[in-house]
Write a protein that binds this DNA or RNA. Structure first.
Lengths: 219, 219
DNA sequence: GTCTATATAAGGATAGAC
DNA sequence: GTCTATCCTTATATAGAC
């Protein structure tokens, strides 16, 4: 009995280690680009050992992506569910999302793989576990920010403004006007907030037209 | 001589057909997800025949992506190089980019694969042939639109606002607030232009604050 | 130009020993 | 839990006939 307890704990531990070590592999090369042999080699195991912990490659992949997301998006959820004014939460969320994407390239690329997945049912499962919670929160925030806009489209635009900047990161660096400071998440956040400031209804706070004087969104 | 001419023409024709038929395959499943067998089968050929026209899979893939882009982004380039005012060109470009992405899912997905490519030199080659021309044009447009903004970041934001909407299309449809009309490129274009209108300096035209009266960006 | 046949490697997955 | 050994399938690519 005590023995089986140890087995379970050990199994859990190895399982978690496999998940954690697989994240960068799948992030870099995607589902088809990584073999069970690759994963086993990265772990210092043989491929056969992986099948003790996971039924097949598909389930291993699903668990890896969900594991990576559960860990990494908790902070953002906290911001979105926070108490500040909608505009404050937006600023913090944009800054947080930019920081996450700048810091953790693996997370960024996993999201890209999810959106490109050619297996429909797999994509649906992942989208539900990975995007739904956060999108629901951004969607309500968008509705609070400016009820005159379409909340769904505004939510997508907010996320897209941050996300695409990093998604295009590796190609952007070869394009005209690139400077290294643009990869600084704080700089991007300021840019995005500057873009959104005048588009969203802040007239009730008397700040709707403040951009002319406010230099924070200017170069 | 006349005979060799026929051979060259035939070779060209078959080559073009292979490229055209490979676009949807690579668009759907990416480089690793498509085999030479798949392509040959789609063509009604054997894999060996492909190696008469292309040295290897890598070069076939490169040619497919470049072929698809050359054909599809010509219209957008025309808009960007057009004669209208910067703001007019922006509106037309956003509308054109939205239409292209909505109409041609293959193009959209090929762009995604390029940005995710794990082969660095391959990604660089593709980025140069696929993005540079258009980005240069959007970059100058951005500089004209509002010299106070960082033109590079503004250009990325303009493209990202349109692109991400469609990139997230398959997952977006399961998220709250989704309505089918949001997939209409004209609706998206209006949304994006509405967002940008107040952020970009149009004060010299006396229209900077016109959003309060202008209902086109409202739901 | 396209075929058949085949070399050679890499992939997912399992059986059974330890 | 992990190993060795192996099965079977699929992959890229080439040689040589037609």
């Amino acid at each position: 009995m005590g023995n089986s307890m140890i087995q379970i704990i050990t199994k859990r531990k190895t399982r978690e280690e496999i998940l954690e070590l697989s994240v960068p592999l799948f992030a870099r090369c995607g589902y088809d680009g990584v073999s069970m042999r690759d994963i086993a080699a990265a772990m210092g195991l043989t491929p056969a050992a992986l099948y003790y912990h996971f039924t097949d490659k598909e389930n291993l992949y699903l668990d890896v992506v969900m594991h990576a997301c559960r860990e990494r998006s908790a902070e953002l959820k906290g911001i979105l569910d926070g108490l500040g004014s909608p505009w404050t939460r937006l600023e913090e969320y944009v800054a947080g999302l930019a920081r996450l994407n700048a810091t953790d390239k693996d997370f960024l690329r996993l999201m890209q793989w999810v959106m490109l997945d050619s297996n429909e049912t797999r994509q649906y499962k992942l989208a539900e576990h990975v995007f739904r919670d956060q999108f629901v929160a951004v969607h309500s925030l968008a509705a609070e920010l400016d009820p005159r806009h379409d909340a769904h489209m505004l939510a997508v635009s907010i996320i897209g403004l941050v996300f695409f900047h990093f998604e295009a990161g590796t190609t952007r660096q070869f394009m005209p006007g690139h400077r290294t400071q643009q990869d600084n998440p704080a700089v991007l956040a300021q840019h995005v907030i500057g873009l959104l400031r005048n588009s969203l209804g802040k007239s009730d706070e008397g700040t709707r037209y403040r951009t002319v004087a406010d230099k924070s969104c200017l170069k």
